[in-house]
Each structure stands twice: as C-alpha cells, then as structure tokens.
Simulated assay, not measured.
Amino acid sequence: MHTAEQKLKERIKELTCLYEVTSLIVNSDYEQIEEVLKAIANCLQVAWQFDEETYVELETPTISIKTEERGEAYVFLKSPIKVFNEPKGVIRVGYPTPKYTLEDFLVEEQQLLDNVCLEVGNLLERKEIKDNQESIRRQVEQADRLRILGEITAGIAHELNTPLANILGFAELLRERVENDSLAVKDLDKIITNTIFSREVVKKLMFFACEMPEERSTINIVPVIEDAIDLLRATLAKNEISCQLDISSENIQLRTDKIQLTQVLFNLIVNAIYFSPPQSKIKVKVTDKKDKVVMVISDEGSGIPKDKENSVFEPFFTTKPVGEGSGLGLSVVHGIIQSHKGRISHAPNKPTGTIFTIELPKIK
C-alpha cells in the first residue's frame, strides 16, 4: 500500500512529466524531431515510481530511441502513437524481470503514457502537415520555373532554327563547288556535322517546350528497337562496348510515336555508352506483357551518384563535363514517357552501373 505522501509524490512526478512533454512539443523545432523525442523518453523515465530501474523505448517509422538499459528482460506498459488515427509507432516503459511484474505499475502510469503518446502523435501530425506543405510549395515553384523556361526555350528554338537551316544548306552547296579541294571539303564536313548536332539540340529544346507534334500509331516496335541499336553499332565498336538485345517476342505491338521511341532509346543507350568502360556490356531487354511493354536498359558504367539520384530527369541537369552534354537527354526521355502515360525509373546495377526501366501501357 502507498501512503498519502507517496501517492502525492507520484502524482507530482506524473504532472511534471506531462508539463515538460507539453513544453517540449510546443517549443519543438520540426527539423530536430529526434532530439525532442529523446527528451520525451528521458522525461518518461523519471516519471515512473521506480525511476532508477525504468527503461523506455520510443519507436516511429523513422526513429528508434532507447534509454539506458537496466536489465536483460523487461515487463512493459505500452501505448500506440497514432498519426491521423493510424498507428505509426509505440512507446514502451518497462521494469526488469523477474524482479517486477505488471502489477508493479500504477493505473495512473498507463494513463500518463496514453496522454504522452497522444501528444507525440499530435506533434508528428503537425510535422507531416508542414512537410506536405513544403513539398507542395516546391512543386508549385518548380512548375512555375518550368513554365517560364518552356516559354523561353520555345522562343530560342524558333529563333535558332532558321539560321541553322541556312548554315546547313549553304554549307552543303559550297561543298559541292569545292569538292576537288580536300581541305575545304574536310572543313565543310565539320561545319555540316556541327550544324546537324546543333539542330538536334534545338529539336530537344522544342520538344521540352512542347512544340514538337506527335504522330502515334500502332506499330511493331521490335524493328524500331533493332534499327536504333544498329545505328549505334559504330559508336559501340569505337568505344569497345557490346550491346545485347533480348526480346520476348518478334512482334510487340504498341501505340507510339516511332521517332520519339527511337529518341528514347538513343538517349539512354548513348548515355550508357558514355559512362561505360571498354570491354563492358549494355543490355536491352524488352518484355511484352498483357497490359504493358517493359524495356530495361542496363550498363556496367560508373552509376548515378547517390546525391544526384533525384535530379537526373531535371532539365539541363548533367554530370558530363561542360560542353559534352546539354542536360536535356533524360529530361526529354522523361517527357516522352510521361506523354505516353508510362513510367521510367532507375536503380543501381550489380556490381556496378545503372538500370533504367521503362513501362509503356498498351493504350488503344
């Protein structure tokens, strides 16, 4: 039996704990949630009647906190942490066994634990709301930047198209006139090659700005894939890289834009070639499923750095040296896949390299 003085002492400890927990939560910094939860666990530890032997565990989906252990096995009081009425964690307060049993806990201690879990759940709810608001704000800012960028890009692309067409046309005419001058022909070939490259960049800019019309039809995509790889055979051989094509069927029907599909394959395979070492292999696997077509392109290159994984599909982002990449390739690929209502994702290859997986739905 507890004396009146002991009962009063326990109530004071419990009220002090609840006050401290409430103060911690009211003044919490959402960027330091783990520190707040550690402090709450410590408050609980000293609130129990046998505080020198009390052990506390606090767990959420992302955080696990344990106070200093006071034994090898424990008997626990526990209460769930609910976030938006869904269990998202638990707090356990225990005594070492066999010295203590459940009968050694006070009814008021369970009530205190339930109240603390309610407060922690409210804290996690507010943090989740704040995180969602921040995410929405970033999405709105990104959409606005892309809208402005799209308008600027469309204007630049239209301005560049005419002079590039003139340069290419006059360079080809001039080449015919000086075909007996090998040095002049060589220089003009460089002009023509670089102009064609510049036009391709402009095409990517125009597609990014949604200025390129689509022409979709239901086709067998196997020849398209084979032709795309064949066109890159010289580049593959030059870099001493092999490309293996694995298809589940010789006839895979898909409603798509042939040029855009070729563009997707070109961008992904050219990227794989760039980052792959000599004597390595690029694999292209195409699987025809009931409701979709899955394409997997894997390489044995250097892989995507961890800190860059979330940026690879952003416009103008590139890990290539200055002058070697426009940063539009994967952004264009992402745009094409999205316009086909599909999905594209990437993952590390084992033991090294990157795997890009494309899922294109069979839309009639």
Rank of each mutant, 00 (worst) to 15 (best):
R175M: 09
V185P: 01
K283F: 02
S217P: 11
K308R: 06
N349A: 14
N194P: 04
L37V: 08
T97H: 06
G327T: 07
R70L: 06
V202L: 12
T262A: 15
N27I: 05
S198G: 10
E250S: 08
T62S: 13
P321K: 12
K258M: 09
K9E: 15
P351Y: 02
I33N: 04
T262S: 14
Q260P: 00
R233S: 12
T287G: 03
A4T: 11
G121L: 13
G342A: 05
S28L: 02
I247V: 12
G325F: 03
I91N: 09
I229T: 02
R145I: 07
N271E: 12
A39W: 00
F317N: 10
F197Y: 11
R199W: 07
L265T: 02
K320L: 11
S326T: 10
K283A: 09
R255Y: 14
I25Q: 04
D181F: 00
S217A: 12
K258I: 08
F275H: 14
I12W: 03
C243I: 05
K289Y: 06
V332W: 08
T352L: 09
F170I: 02
R199G: 14
E109K: 00
T97C: 13
N42K: 07
R233A: 08
E20M: 09
V93H: 01
V312N: 05
